[in-house]
Design a protein around this nucleic acid. Structure first.
Length: 784
DNA sequence: GAGTTTGAAACT
DNA sequence: CAGTTTCAAACTC
């Protein structure tokens, strides 16, 4: 492989350290590939037929990846999500990110060093961001050269989005079109093949070729044409809104940029990266550096460089986009400051793994497959990603994706106008990708996470709904309920001048700022570092090393931290609805919109989870059984347990237990006061409802006393109720363990709530009155 | 703005 | 693994 001197230098520098790393003996990614390689042509054909839904009478193909089970009856229902990149639609869809598929390497992450499967959340944002940033500076047709020769410093840092994706206007089609095939601006699948050949010695050449041909031949792309058009129109509206906003509010510089933005919109071009993208860029900076090194190191060794990293799953998507990242990701800051509007790019898998996995997604994209949403929420960001199987959306749901911008325009136009909106519909599963962001009021949650997955048209939440993680980072209120908006306003009004200033600075900056003084911004104390971004000039940190010029140091430190805690850089807040069990049913649909919960839970002692000291509160999620807080009064209530955690109901969070109790009471009272005894069974599910379904969030502590809880609680707890306010004050087992428990017995957990009913006396005995919230404490006193 | 409080992260 | 220290954000005055 030809390498630039710089590439060789970095490769030499990093190879030693990486090779000596004990934690990265074997990359999940390489495992994944190695497990793909045994596929022979016949299997490949079968598999491809299966995934492409050709309905050939081939048996399900066992795709022997240890992490990806493709043995599913499936048809290529996700074909709707494949867009013919070279189509006219794409030429017109300048403002949309249309990503066929990033590899859903969350599955690969299953073998992260931590062994943490369920809790770990990929950050598709980084993928997206990487893509986004990368694509700006790299034309697709550069990929082959990059793949084969390492990367020279990039020159094209501001390539237009559509140029990037489809080639310049004179070099348009890229992917999955006949034209692409002929002109060879290297479609993703071709890139796939090229890279696969390089890496695996053409082991999967046949597969790649077959998939490519099949996809090309497929007519499924046509159906997305109209969607893409809508996407483009809506995005353009949003962009214009953003430009208007900028014109109205921004500085003269921004105004100029706005004008330019407008011009570009009018021309059908969109500038990359606005203020709001700064966060994105910053966020991907680490990844870019890694990716750069990954590539430079070469295929044989590079995977290890990412193995330990939480982002290893993104490496494939990064693979072909490295040059520009490496060369430009540090000067993004400057460039982004001049850019008001982030418009969408069309993203396509360009790495072999990406393409290949895209196909896999297709396989998994069956309507029967449950949606396993994984929402990762940093405190300062939210990222939704989907597992391999969670990337599955029915075509119906895909429609929801595409309709989102429109919905937002319809329902949140005011907010869009007054608050920048940033909408990024996760393309992890190859969905139409819409990222509209503008102006200075971006959401940090968006800019740094910027990846969302919306599950369905029916239950789809505004993309920012769950993004309002940080009151300082929540400008994206599109689609918020009136009450939410009111809350936000009140919250703003209640801010002290200082905090307002800070918030303003934050908002204007559009990214997290730190004030570290002693940590050199190289510890998790540093919010920037913890968020995986470099500090920016506006940070007030002292002796900061979290800067691009200390890239190696940053990465080394990061590696060390991840070696200590592989999840250190993963989102702290996750969605409950990550259950991947086949029992995914209505229950997840019943979870609250903010079904997210803090992954590790808080440990608050004095703040009662009522202040932002509490990470749950800060993330605006309810405390869960993962928390070990004392005297929890989290106004966001109690986050319902994930399905797979319901066995832990024995020691559920007190407030949640109360909800369980009330549900059970309802069941009891139903037969008692109704002649329709048969309704009893119908009532049971109510007890199984997530607590938030029984009580609105925040109302948990206002529940009037009911004299049945205690007996219910005690009856339902085979083990003594933990005396603390939080059941996990003395954590029995780490969340990982519970996750594994779920894996072993995914179905037997809901009995926890049923057990409440089954073990409940026909008529609850009289028990001493006690406050529902402080009940455990009173019990404690009684014991004394 | 300075000082205090808080809880996560880091350390022992 | 528990206890302690360090740290920076959140908060108060």
């Amino acid at each position: 492989m030809d390498r630039t001197p710089e590439a060789n230098r970095i490769a030499a520098t990093k190879s030693s350290s990486i090779s000596s790393s004990p934690a990265v003996q074997e990359s999940p990614f390489s495992n994944f590939l190695s497990n793909l390689s045994p596929l022979n042509t016949a299997t490949t054909a079968s598999y491809t037929q299966t995934l492409l839904g050709t309905n050939l009478p081939t048996p399900p193909v066992v795709f022997t990846s240890p992490h990806i089970n493709l043995q599913r009856e499936t048809s290529f229902l996700e074909r709707d999500d494949i867009v013919e990149a070279g189509s006219e639609v794409y030429k017109e869809c300048n403002t949309n990110i249309v990503q066929i598929q990033n590899p859903s390497f969350e599955e690969v992450q299953l073998c992260s060093p931590s062994g943490c499967v369920d809790e770990y959340l990929a950050d598709p944002v980084e993928v997206d961001s990487t893509w986004s940033a990368d694509l700006r500076s790299q034309r697709t047709n550069e990929v082959p050269r990059l793949l084969h020769s390492g990367f020279a410093p990039g020159e094209e840092s501001n390539t237009e989005v559509c140029d990037i994706m489809f080639g310049s206007p004179e070099n348009e089609a890229v992917l999955l079109s006949d034209q692409a095939e002929k002109n060879l601006p290297l479609s993703s699948l071709e890139m796939s093949q090229a890279a696969i050949n390089q890496r695996d010695g053409k082991k999967t050449e046949e597969l790649s070729r077959f998939i490519f041909e099949k996809v090309k031949e497929s007519d499924v792309n046509a159906c997305l044409v109209s969607r893409a058009q809508n996407c483009g129109e809506n995005a353009a509206k949003l962009h214009r809104a953003g430009c208007q906003y900028d014109e109205k509010n921004a500085s003269s510089q921004s105004r100029e940029d706005s004008n330019e933005c407008k011009q570009r919109v009018q021309k059908g071009f969109v500038k990359e990266g606005g203020q709001n993208e700064r966060g994105i860029r910053r966020h991907l900076q680490f990844e870019a550096a890694k990716a750069y090194k990954f590539t430079i190191l070469g295929n044989s060794e590079s995977p290890n460089s990412l193995t330990h990293d939480a982002t290893n799953s993104r490496s494939p998507s990064i693979l072909t986009n490295l040059k520009s990242l490496a060369s430009s990701h540090f000067d993004n800051r400057a460039s982004s400051s001049l850019q008001d509007v982030s418009c969408d790019t069309l993203q396509f898998p360009s790495s072999p793994y990406e393409s290949f996995t895209s196909a896999q997604i297709g396989v998994n994209s069956t309507t029967s497959a449950p949606i396993h949403s994984v929402i990762g929420l940093h405190l300062n960001r939210i990222s939704r990603s989907t597992s391999l199987s969670s990337d599955i959306f029915s075509s119906k749901k895909s429609i929801g994706y595409l309709s989102m911008p429109e919905q937002m325009l319809e329902h949140g136009s005011n907010n869009i106008a007054t608050n920048s909106s940033s909408i990024l519909t996760s393309a992890v599963s190859g969905k139409i990708y819409v990222h509209v962001a503008s102006g200075q009021q971006e959401s940090q949650a968006v800019t740094e996470a910027n990846s969302f997955t919306f599950h369905s048209t029916d239950t789809m939440k505004p993309p920012c709904h769950s993004m309002l993680v940080d009151q300082e980072t929540a400008p994206c209120e599109v689609g918020m309920s009136a009450s939410q908006e009111t809350d936000e306003v009140e919250e703003l009004n209640q801010l002290s001048p200082k905090r307002k200033r800070r918030r303003d600075a934050y908002m204007s900056e559009g990214c997290k700022r730190c004030n570290c003084r002693r940590s050199k911004c190289l510890k998790l104390y540093c919010e920037c570092f913890a968020a995986g971004v470099y500090c920016v000039d506006s940070c007030a940190c002292v002796n900061c090393y979290n800067k691009p010029e200390f890239e190696d140091t940053v990465l080394d430190i990061r590696q060390q931290i991840e070696a200590r805690n592989p999840l250190a850089f993963t989102p702290k807040v996750v969605d409950n609805a990550i259950d991947s069990s086949p029992n995914f049913t209505e229950e997840q649909d019943l979870t609250t919109p903010s079904s997210a919960r803090h992954k590790r839970g808080c440990n608050c002692k004095k703040s009662k989870c009522l202040k932002r000291y509490c990470e749950c509160f800060q993330a605006k999620v309810g405390c869960s059984s993962a928390c070990r807080c004392e005297g929890c009064k989290n106004t966001f209530g109690v986050t319902p347990e994930p399905v797979y955690n319901r066995a832990k109901k024995w020691e559920a969070h007190p407030a949640e237990k109360l909800d369980n109790v009330k549900g059970a009471i309802a069941c009891i009272k139903a037969p008692a006061f109704s002649s329709a005894s048969s309704s009893n069974s119908a009532k049971i599910p109510q007890a199984q409802l997530p607590s938030s379904q029984l009580q609105p969030s925040g109302a948990h502590y206002d529940i009037p006393y009911d004299d049945t809880p205690e007996i219910l609680e005690e009856t339902s707890n085979p083990t003594k109720v933990v005396r603390a306010s939080s059941p996990n004050q003395k954590r029995v087992s780490p969340p990982q363990s519970r996750s594994r428990l779920r894996e072993r017995s995914p179905t037997g957990l809901r009995s926890g709530r049923k057990f409440i009913l089954q073990a409940m006396p026909s008529f609850p005995p009289l028990t001493p009155h006690r406050n529902s919230k402080e009940g455990t404490n009173e019990i404690e006193n009684d014991d004394k």
